[in-house]
Design a protein around this nucleic acid. Structure first.
Lengths: 183, 183
DNA sequence: CGGACCTTTGAGCGTTATCAAGTAGTGTGG
DNA sequence: CCACACTACTTGATAACGCTCAAAGGTCCG
C-alpha cells in the first residue's frame, strides 16, 4: 500500500508501449485486483512505477485473505475498494471511448487534482504535478507529441499552466466543459 | 442476474451517445459494481439493455449483503466477481487506449466469442451474434459507419463473415495478430 | 406499396500519428 | 569553464485514420 508519494499501475505492451491504468496516491493499494488470486495467473504483464519518492506499507496478502474469513470488516473494506476500482475503470473506458484528445487530457488533469486535493479545485492555485507528458500520453492513449500540442493550446487559451512540476488552473468552468462532452 | 440471453451494461451520455461497458451472458450479474452501495449515489447514468430475449433471476441485494456478513463464501464469491470485473475493465482500457479501429473490433469479436463458447474457437464454425453494428461501435468507441468499413475489409480479406446474426471466423491466426498489437 | 431500420459506399475534412528538426535544461567529464 | 551527451518539450510538414454528411440498396413489417 502506498503511504506517501505518487505512483501508477500500468500494463507493459509487447510493442514497447504501455497503458497506464491508474494513478496511485497515499492510501491506495498498488495491486488491488490481484490481492485475491493466490496463483497470480494473470497473463498481462501488470507493473507499477513510482513518480516521486514514495513510502510503502507492506502486508501479507495471505494474512489479509485469512482475515477476510474471520472478520467481516476486512471483507467489506476489500469489497468497497474493488467496487471503487470498477467504477473508476468504467469512467476511464467512457473517457477513452467517447472523448477526443482535449477531453481526455482535461478529464485526466481534473480528476487527478480532485483526487489529490480531496476538495473543490481552486482557480489559480498551484498543484504539484510530478507527471511527464509521456505519462499523460500513456494514460489517455495519445502520443507525447500530441499531448504537448494540446497542452500548448490550453496554455495559449488561458485555461491552465503546466510546467516545472506545477499545474495551475485558470479557467475551471471551461475545462469542465471540455472534460464533460456536452458537445 | 442474467439466466439466459445476451444483454449489455452501458452509460448513457448527455450528448446522446452511449458507451457500452460490458456485454452480459448467462451467469453475469447485471450491475455488479453497485451491489454494495445501498445509497446508489452513482452520478453517471448506468443502464442495461437486452440484446435477445432474456430471462433474469432476481435476488435482494440487501439480503446478499447480509449474507456476506455471516457466510464467508458469499463474500468470497463477490470478491472474485469484482476482481474479474476490474481485470476485464482494465483490458478494455488497454484496448481503447492502444489499438486502432481494426484491433479494437477484432479484440471485441474474439473475446466475446471466447466468453460465449467457453472453449477454443474453431475456424469456419458459426457463432450466434445478436449485436448490431451500432452496438459494436458503442462498445469500442467508433462510429457505425467506420465499423461497417472495417467489417467489410475483414470480409474482403477473408478473415471473417458477419451477417444475419451469425459470425464465422475464417482466419483466426490473422485476427489474433490484429487483436494483439504486435505491430 | 410505403416506411423504418440496418448496412454499404463515396467524398471531403478534421484529428491524430509519424518523422524530423530545433530548443532548453541538466549533469558529466575534460 | 566549456564541450558533450541526455532528457523533456516544442514545432513543422506530411500522411494515415476516423468522422461527418449524404445517398443508395436491402430487409422486414405494416
Amino acid at each position: 500500500m502506498l503511504c506517501s508519494g505518487w505512483a501508477f499501475r500500468h500494463v507493459q505492451l509487447s510493442n514497447g508501449g504501455r497503458q497506464i491504468l491508474k494513478f496511485l496516491f497515499p492510501g491506495d493499494v498498488v495491486f488491488s485486483e490481484t490481492l485475491l488470486s493466490q496463483a497470480e495467473a494473470s497473463n498481462p504483464s501488470y507493473s507499477a512505477k513510482a513518480l516521486t519518492d514514495i513510502q510503502l506499507c507492506s502486508f501479507s496478502a495471505g494474512a489479509l485473505r485469512e482475515k477476510c474469513r474471520s472478520y467481516e470488516i476486512a471483507a467489506q473494506a476489500l469489497l468497497q475498494m474493488l467496487t471503487e476500482d470498477v467504477r473508476t475503470a468504467y469512467e476511464l473506458v467512457t473517457v477513452l471511448g467517447q472523448h477526443a484528445a482535449e477531453g481526455r487530457i482535461a478529464h485526466l488533469l481534473l480528476s487527478l487534482m480532485r483526487r489529490v486535493s480531496q476538495q473543490a479545485l481552486a482557480v489559480d492555485r498551484r498543484y504539484p504535478f510530478p507527471l511527464r507528458q509521456q505519462h499523460v500520453a500513456d494514460a489517455v492513449g495519445l502520443t507525447p507529441v500530441h499531448v504537448s500540442r494540446v497542452l500548448t493550446s490550453f496554455r495559449d487559451r488561458g485555461l491552465l499552466t503546466l510546467g516545472d512540476g506545477m499545474l495551475v488552473f485558470h479557467d475551471l468552468a471551461q475545462l469542465d466543459r471540455i472534460a464533460s462532452l456536452q458537445s
